[in-house]
């Protein structure tokens, strides 16, 4: 039964990511790439969750994996990587808990609002942390490759 449940989560997560890829106006030939990104994100998240990791850690790791994937395909297909990142992390996005937080604040249930709010913040921080790590690594790598390029040019000038 739990296998079926995992399968359901992964299939629906992938469908959701593919759907949002279309709503975000990604080119049709790039939509499958984004959908697989969503699949990877959901799978990592689900298995981390099964393993017992907390919300922050599982979202952090899922984001990192899917950001690496997105960067590889962004280089291959010559598209900005944000295109694939945005669509792939859709299944991780804390839409449900953000909604529960706000509705509990409106209904005056402080305890539930605090729990859901904490969840939302954990997930959002996990996703943001993953993307920050990516931009750090990419900028360092860019700087290294640029330094190599200028060195090559200087050598050629000599």
């Amino acid at each position: 039964m739990w296998m079926l449940n995992i399968l359901k989560l992964i299939v629906t997560g992938t469908l959701g990511a593919a759907g949002f890829a279309v709503l975000f106006g990604i080119k049709l030939k790039h939509v499958p790439v984004a959908a697989v990104g969503g699949l990877i994100a959901t799978a990592v998240y689900v298995f981390m969750d099964l393993w017992g990791a907390n919300l922050f850690l599982s979202n952090f790791l899922a984001t990192i994996v899917c950001v690496i994937y997105a960067n590889i395909f962004a280089r291959v297909l010559k598209t900005p990587s944000i295109v694939f990142i945005t669509a792939s992390i859709i299944p991780l996005v804390p839409g449900g808990s953000l909604f529960y937080t706000m509705s509990n604040i409106i209904l005056g249930d402080g305890l539930a609002a605090k729990t859901y709010g904490l969840n939302t913040l954990q997930v959002a921080l996990g996703i943001a942390g993953g993307i920050v790590i990516e931009s750090l690594v990419v900028s360092v790598m860019l700087r290294i490759s640029q330094a190599k390029l200028t060195k090559k040019r200087l050598d050629a000038d000599k």
Partner: peptide, 22 residues
């Protein structure tokens, strides 16, 4: 919850925190 994913700004919540950290 299913319909809310279409309208809720969960993504911009995440990207705003990314901007803050960057």
């Amino acid at each position: 919850i299913g319909t809310i994913m279409l309208v809720i700004p969960g993504l911009s919540f995440g990207t705003s925190i990314r901007d803050l950290l960057c």
